Computed example of a mutant assay.
Amino acid sequence: MTSSASKSPGAALAGLLSFVLVVGGASGLLHEWLGWIHFMGFVRFAVPDGYEVFGYVVMVAVGLAVGAAGDALTGRGRRR
């Protein structure tokens, strides 16, 4: 059995959410600091006006926490 087959739906959803938050937050930070285009522009609607940098940093931190939680869910299924 492969490792992807043993992944629970909750862990897969956490991985997807983690990816969107981390990449979206990093893309927003790059846009704010360097003026690059938004790679994932829809995340700008999740951040209030005037708090863009803080909001994107929080988005990256929450994404990392969700990813760690999803990894813990996957690790729990492998233990015997």
Rank of each mutant, 00 (worst) to 15 (best):
L30Y: 01
W36K: 10
M59R: 05
R80N: 11
V66H: 02
F19C: 05
A61E: 07
R78P: 04
L29N: 05
F19I: 08
G50P: 02
G55A: 01
R80W: 13
R78N: 14
V57P: 00
G10F: 07
A12L: 13
D71H: 14
G28R: 02
E32L: 09
S4L: 11
L17T: 08
I37P: 10
A5N: 06
F45V: 13
G70R: 02
V58W: 05
A61Y: 08
R79T: 12
G41Y: 11
V62H: 07
E32G: 07
A65R: 14
M1D: 06
L64A: 14
S18M: 01
V57G: 04
G25D: 04
I37T: 11
F54V: 15
W33V: 13
V22Q: 02
K7Y: 03
T74L: 10
A72V: 12
Y51F: 14
A11M: 03
G28H: 00
W36Q: 10
V20E: 12
M1C: 00
D49W: 12
A26N: 07
D71E: 14
V23P: 00
F42Y: 11
G63Y: 00
G25P: 01
S8N: 08
G28W: 02
L34S: 15
M59Q: 12
A69T: 10
G67T: 05
G10C: 05
F42P: 00
G41Q: 09
R44K: 13
V20C: 13
G24C: 06
S27Y: 01
A72T: 12
H31K: 10
R79V: 07
R79G: 08
L64N: 02
L13P: 05
S3H: 06
V58G: 03
G28E: 03
H38K: 08
T2K: 06
L34C: 07
F45K: 08
S4D: 07
A26Y: 08
G77L: 12
M1P: 07
G77W: 03
G55K: 00
Y56K: 03
D71R: 15
K7Q: 11
I37D: 09
V60A: 00
V57W: 04
R78T: 10
A12H: 09
V53W: 01
A65C: 07
Y51R: 13
M40F: 12
G50K: 01
A68F: 09
G24I: 01
W36L: 14
H38W: 14
F39A: 14
A69M: 08
G63M: 03
V23F: 12
F39M: 12
A11H: 03
L34P: 07
V53K: 07
A26P: 04
V62Y: 00
K7E: 04
A65T: 08
I37K: 12
S8R: 02
E32V: 07
L17V: 12
R44L: 11
F45T: 11
A68W: 15
A69D: 05
V58E: 06
V47T: 04
G67K: 03
G28S: 06
A11S: 03
K7P: 00
L17N: 04
G24W: 00
R78H: 15
S4Q: 05
H31W: 07
S3M: 08
M40K: 04
L16T: 10
R44I: 12
G50I: 04
L17F: 14
M1E: 05
H31I: 05
S27W: 03
F45H: 11
A61L: 11
A5M: 10
W36D: 11
W33H: 15
R76A: 15
V53F: 01
L21C: 11
R44S: 15
A72F: 13
